[in-house]
Design a protein around this nucleic acid. Structure first.
Length: 504
RNA sequence: CGGAGUGUAGCUCAGCCUGGUCAGAGCGCUUGCUUUGGGAGCAAGAAGUCGCAGGUUCGAAUCCUGUCACUCCGACCA
């Protein structure tokens, strides 16, 4: 039997279209009049705020302070670091004028700027310039700064949340006395992200290092968290860079060491963006719309009063009000429960489906029947939308924390099982080819995943594989067994295992 | 930047080939009644400079020229 799904097409039928439909159905975001720039709607923004709030707490607990740097970066700043220029030049938005003047009924840019300003694609250079002023001595180190900001990278092919010309993010920047300390910091922040993804978003990630081909422009090492989503493509969910002394040299960040030597500081940078919202959608949602792990859900429990006749109203509303009050006393994961009543005069079915599509973990229906029986009809987002459990108010309230914890755990386990079942060890070219080739080339089915391959190749070989197979090395996992086996592409003894995959 | 396509109501689109009862449909919206416990029904209603600018014509959503915008595929993308 095929049940009608709330989202059409389904994931199997057309994943990219499904993704867009989930966003529309859950009312998360929409395209704006400005190409490539999205409008994040209240429900989508609330999810981002949930992430932001928790991440902000963790970053501060790790010893970083928030600050804010300018949106505009002098062109000359960007020119300071050669690789950095090369990496970002093509996607920069540039402000060349100030002042608008009326001409023939139109507004035209008036006064040219002496030096064009680049809208920040990232802030290494302008923060570096500030660091250079702030840091005098080894006593000023380490310096740990974070900022929440928007950045602009002029994208040619935007997709809501995944790749937009403007997006929101957090970027951390630190400076240290030694290479070891800076490297440790980069790794520490990657692990912080990893824990955040695991505990809040129920997303298992492969932690690893980028190959030179995929490295951040100007970085010595780039660390990444790669998440496999339901179409078995990999998405970079967080990144952390050890920048060596490259940006310190470019920006003149020096300090006087205890021995009295003038030295360049060692810096790091790291960030996660609104792309996490897209990752969350693609990892957890189903053919009935968005599905939110309880810890990121802006509303965890929605109460749905069912009122057919006016004379029923008082009793139903009283029951809802009482339940709301009781639940508001409770907490989950150290925070008060987030509960709402949807009192809009809509038909019960329509209202119920709306919250299914929005991904709210628990739905509680209360009508005259429940009032009479002294029960609640409870539905879970991780069950079929039509399933309901009749529970007494007491039972529900007493167990609600545990229920949410179970659901959170369930999201994690499902995602982890998915990642594991689509990660394959591969030892030969043939196997590799088979893994990344759909059975039906006319109408390719969802295929592939992470291919774990012994590797001894270089960038040129990686380029070649990318050209032929459209797959790239997503990362060199940090968790490695001692090198063994032969690289199937170069025939040489492997240096390590790498993960290949299709990338977002 | 290359290839293809699309601009008509808030949204999705039909109409264009063959110019003239072509200003249309569905969804959504408003109002009323009936329904509400499984994504309601009926009735009435509001809503469009047919992307924009020229041209051809008695007459243009429709044909011609130009222009702008967007979408998809490629290239590009920490």
């Amino acid at each position: 039997m095929t049940e009608r799904t709330a989202i059409s097409p389904t994931r199997q039928e057309d994943f990219p279209e499904w993704y867009q439909q989930v966003i529309a159905a859950a009312d998360l975001a929409e395209n704006s009049e400005v190409r490539g720039c999205m409008i994040i709607k209240p429900w989508g923004y609330a999810i981002w705020e949930r992430m932001q709030r928790e991440l902000d707490r963790r970053i501060k607990a790790a010893g970083h302070q928030n600050a804010y740097f300018p949106l505009f970066i002098p062109l000359s700043f960007l020119e300071k670091e050669a690789e950095h220029v090369e990496g970002f030049a093509k996607e920069c938005a540039v402000v060349t004028h100030h002042r608008l003047e009326a001409k023939e009924g139109r507004l035209v840019p008036g006064a040219p700027l002496a030096e064009p300003l680049v809208v920040r694609p990232t802030s290494e250079t302008i923060i570096g310039a500030a660091f250079a002023r702030w840091i005098q001595s080894y006593r000023d180190l380490p310096l740990r700064i974070n900022q929440w900001a928007n950045v602009v990278r002029w994208e040619l092919r935007p997709r809501l949340f995944l790749r937009t010309s403007e997006f929101l993010w957090q970027e951390g920047h630190t400076a240290h006395q030694s290479a070891e300390e800076a490297e440790a910091e980069a790794l520490r922040m990657l692990r912080l992200y990893e824990g955040f993804l695991r505990e809040m978003l129920a997303l298992p990630a492969m932690a690893g290092e980028k190959t030179p081909r995929e490295r951040f422009p100007g970085a010595v090492r780039t660390l990444t968290l790669e998440v496999l989503v339901q179409d078995r493509k990999a998405i970079q969910a967080g990144t952390s860079h050890f920048l060596g002394q490259n940006f310190a040299r470019a920006n003149g960040i020096t300090f006087l060491s205890p021995e009295g030597h003038q030295e360049h500081a060692w810096t790091t940078s790291w960030g996660v963006s609104t792309r996490l919202v897209g990752t969350l959608i693609m990892a957890h949602s189903d053919d009935n719309g968005l599905a939110l792990p309880p810890r990121v859900a802006p509303t965890q429990i929605i109460l749905l009063p069912l009122i057919r006749k006016e004379e029923e109203r008082a009793a139903v509303e009283a029951a809802c009000g009482r339940l709301l009050a009781e639940l508001s006393e409770k907490s989950y994961a150290g925070e008060p429960l987030r509960v709402e009543i949807d009192a809009r005069p809509l038909a019960g079915g329509a209202k119920n489906w709306e919250w299914v599509k929005k991904g709210v973990p628990l739905r509680v229906e209360i009508g005259p029947r429940e009032v009479a029986a002294g029960t609640l009809s409870v539905s879970r987002r991780d069950w079929s939308p039509r399933e309901r459990l009749a529970l007494s108010e007491q039972q529900f309230v007493a167990n609600v924390e545990q229920t949410l914890a179970e659901m959170q755990q369930g999201f994690w386990e499902r995602a982890l099982a998915f990642q594991k079942s689509h990660t394959r060890r591969i030892g030969s070219r043939e196997e590799f080819l088979e893994f990344f080739t759909p059975k039906d080339s006319e109408n390719p089915e969802i295929h592939g995943g992470f291919a774990e391959v012994p590797w001894a190749g270089d960038t040129a070989l990686e380029d070649k594989i990318h050209e032929e197979q459209k797959v790239t090395i997503r990362c060199i996992p940090l968790e490695q067994e001692p090198a063994s086996g032969t690289c199937p592409f170069s025939g040489r003894p492997a240096k390590h295992r790498v993960l290949f995959g299709k990338a977002y």
